[in-house]
Amino acid sequence: QEPLTASMLAAAPPQEQKQMIGERLYPLIHATHPSLAGKITGMLLEIDNTELLLLLESPDSLHCKIEEAVAVLQAHQATETSHKSSTTAF
């Protein structure tokens, strides 16, 4: 796929813009986190499109953002686990 530019994005209807970005983000995330790729891509797609274009242009920034998403997921799962164990204890 050719790199996604702001003008390409602007030419597409809003509902297709996230799809276009997602199509490019997903393989990059799948390469490092195959089992979480769908979830992480969804989380990142909630970021503003301008910021997402920056991420697609900067592998380092994208890597940091992916690791942030993984950390958020892990913290959430830890909260869920501790919440379940505390409710089962009563």
Partner: peptide
Amino acid sequence: APVVKSKLSVKAPEFYPSGYNQNFNQ
């Protein structure tokens, strides 16, 4: 590198590209 500030939510729906099954589930 550009600094991107935004809050990530676990409630976000999962995203799969079109043609997902053919390309990623071999």
